[in-house]
Design a protein around this nucleic acid. Sequence first.
DNA 1: CTCGCCACCTGAAACGTTTCACGTCGCGAT
DNA 2: ATCGCGACGTGAAACGTTTCAGGTGGCGAG
Lengths: 341, 341
Amino acid sequence: MAASIKEVAQRAGVSLGTVSNVLNRPDIVSPQTRRRVQEAIEELGFVRNDSARQLRAGRSRTVAIVVLDVSNPFFTDVVRGAESVVEGAGGMVVVCNSGGDASREHRHLDVLEEQRVQGLLVTPVSDGRQPRLDRMVKRGIPVVLVDRGAGLANQCSVAVDDVLGGRLAAEHLAERGHRRIAFVGGPLSLRQVADRRAGAESALAERDLPPPLVVETPVLSVSTGRVAADEIVALPATRRPTAIFCANDLVALGALQALTAHGLRVPDDIALVGYDDIEFAAGAAVPLSSIRQPREQLGRTAAQLLLEESTDPEHHEHRHVVFQPELAVRQSSERKRRRTR
Amino acid sequence: MAASIKEVAQRAGVSLGTVSNVLNRPDIVSPQTRRRVQEAIEELGFVRNDSARQLRAGRSRTVAIVVLDVSNPFFTDVVRGAESVVEGAGGMVVVCNSGGDASREHRHLDVLEEQRVQGLLVTPVSDGRQPRLDRMVKRGIPVVLVDRGAGLANQCSVAVDDVLGGRLAAEHLAERGHRRIAFVGGPLSLRQVADRRAGAESALAERDLPPPLVVETPVLSVSTGRVAADEIVALPATRRPTAIFCANDLVALGALQALTAHGLRVPDDIALVGYDDIEFAAGAAVPLSSIRQPREQLGRTAAQLLLEESTDPEHHEHRHVVFQPELAVRQSSERKRRRTR
DNA sequence: CTCGCCACCTGAAACGTTTCACGTCGCGAT
DNA sequence: ATCGCGACGTGAAACGTTTCAGGTGGCGAG
């Protein structure tokens, strides 16, 4: 059923090594032999066995990317960026989804290590040292942290400056005259979330505004955004914030739905700023102001760093690339009624 | 660096086979030996080499899913459904993205075949026989078609009745009094698209309504939806449709944006119905009516069929599971101004 | 005619597992 | 004391590649 090189060799009347040569260095075998072998391959429907190949080679040509949430358009865009680079270099990307769950992440990493992947792009669930990642690095498997842990000495990373992003969002809202601002997102242990919050807090502090009301969510999703907004709506009007900065667009979209359901108008009653500027943000019920990140470029750059380290581990120097986010202002944070400034 | 079983055996002072037994049938080795081996494994940081294992075993434990578009929430939900089943069975899912591009699909299938994956869930780009898929099936690799090609004899499939979905959408619009209806989506060669259109057409025909104006898009995405809507807007008002049925929600969201940008009101000037009922449909600028599909269940069922075939190929009978879609009515197809019926 | 070289091909080793037919040892039954 | 048996270990074969040190034969140069 599964023809092997040996059978191909037999059928073509050549030796095993010759078939391998046809496969790997066709130029060094004479045209007629080559043709005979190719015919045999065709006739038998031979397909290389990658396990055997890898076993011999010691490593594979696939690059893995472990993301926090496949359902989040932010990550799918990062994936596409990485794919474009890796496939351009003749490799293959496999996508693993940790779903923000540490144990699933562990299982994925274990399997990937057993598979001796060529390299790993990963946005880890938790930010502390990940023994599994360290071990892979020690083993010589290049690891690039995506949107995480800038500054670790033993691996590259790409990230977007989340503190700046948080700052941009808070400054924008402060300039629009908001004093009571809420921050919604979580878990706060996620570095992204913590940084965005910290950026917002320091921007507010600089303006002598009170720190934001923080509503923590268990994960970043539309439904947790709804729940958080419900909480905010339930506050007495005097303490209720006039603006919400959400840690990502999914949360913001959920919040938008809940606010609207409670009869609150956005931005008139409550302004809203999201994060990521996913494609759906601009098309929301109220077009969502958001902090834009260069998602595909994040993926591309991460993949480039990985391939670079992979092809020349000797001269490779770990780098930490940080991109700048941008504020995209839309209706959700701009009062429609004339009242400029 | 990469310790092998042999080194573990040496260090533990046992034979190679014993280490393997500790790994695979710990119960048949005496507790003290087991412990010694485990310590050696620990100390050396030994990690099984999956290539070698697979080579010996002849196949891997990973299941691949090849989707048309990772960025489409429809597919990410299908993936999650499949993941839940496969991981429950101790396997692993890798996600490959064809992006609707036949050549990328081919490359992915080639690589997956070389990797001797345990099985394959796939939504192929084109609907005709895929020689690569046939070959994999012949090779004994179970293939389940997702949302495609129901009725092929040599493989299982799961799908949602797209003809019915198209019918539901068209009936809904016809009942709301629309006569000139457009169908937007493409490529028309995609079975989903063709079926949804066919369903809509037959529903209209049964009511003696004219067939829909078909605007074909190169792919199903937000941006192509925008372009298509621009075209429709450019039509003279007398010929312009009063309702648009889009082949999926991405297209519908794009159309919604374009219509709004041109100052047309939805649903008053043009009604809109999408397909898939992705999470973002309900949160759109005008909440989108849509045809809901059981996305996660689609993935779960596909994975179950696959595992079933994989574990007992002898008794397996190929099945074709078809789910029913449902209409979710929201504001985009309901006139706000009182004028019920 | 002989030598050396080149082009081409061969065969075996090695990669790290798993599996399986066999040893070995100790102990209870006879 | 001997036999048989069970429990535990062993070692080699096999999986399908790739690689590499050599073989072989033909041909031009001397």
